[in-house]
Amino acid sequence: MSRIKKKFEDLSQNNRRALIPFITAGDPNLEVTLKLMSALVDSGSDIIELGIPFSDPIADGPTIQRASERALAGETSLSNVLDLVKTFRETDRETPVVLMGYANPIEALGVDAFVARAAEVGVDGVLVVDYPPEESSALNLALKENQIDSIFLLAPTTLEARITDVAALATGYVYYVSLKGVTGAGHLDIEDVSKRVEQIKKHVKVPVGVGFGIRDGETARAVAQVSDAVVIGSRLVEEIEQSEAENIIKNVEGFIRSIRKAIDQV
């Protein structure tokens, strides 16, 4: 059984929702990212989404753009990100790690080479923002052969017929983008999200996570009420960006604990 599947089964036995933080690998540098990954787990995260930095992140708002820029200023490459997961796995064999990024760095490394290496270092899922199902058959095949989950996005603009198509390919979980906008936007409509997740669940057998626009305990709790997993990115990256170097770990742990607490009230 995949680590992601097992994680969701354990959570649902305890009637709990998953907390999935997103951070960009290499922001502010790879050593801190490694420490942050453990800190995220220690403070109550269930799955870690690790961003692969890219020079032209069209789906990201200013906060995650800046995180990518900081990571690239330190010349963080996809190979570095894979090495980071390898090091993380030396001490943590349980927490699922999902890589999230854009197509070009993956194509530059080569889809098959990327997947082989991802399997070797212990990556559990891959989400490529600009690889919709119609453009990602090579990647999906390679992921399947290597038992890595293919995570797909669904959006408020996704038609019902298309949800069925995505459902046929999705493994691990699907990621519902809660609003029309880039990461970090702040106009989440919970009622709307609730209706859409219900519709998605009619077709999709894997758990449904919701992300984009979750900024605090209150929005996290509201989203946890209507979904299986809460993804929190920009607000967390802001915490990293705004903390003095020596306080990053402490502040991130405090923030994640507060979100965990809010989610567990559901």
């Binding site: 408020p156 996704t158 983008v177």
Partner: peptide, 19 residues
Amino acid sequence: KGHFGPYGGVFVPETLIHA
């Protein structure tokens, strides 16, 4: 599908597919 041999295509986030 919008391809010119191996080039072209629709490499966009899901939100834009319908548009």
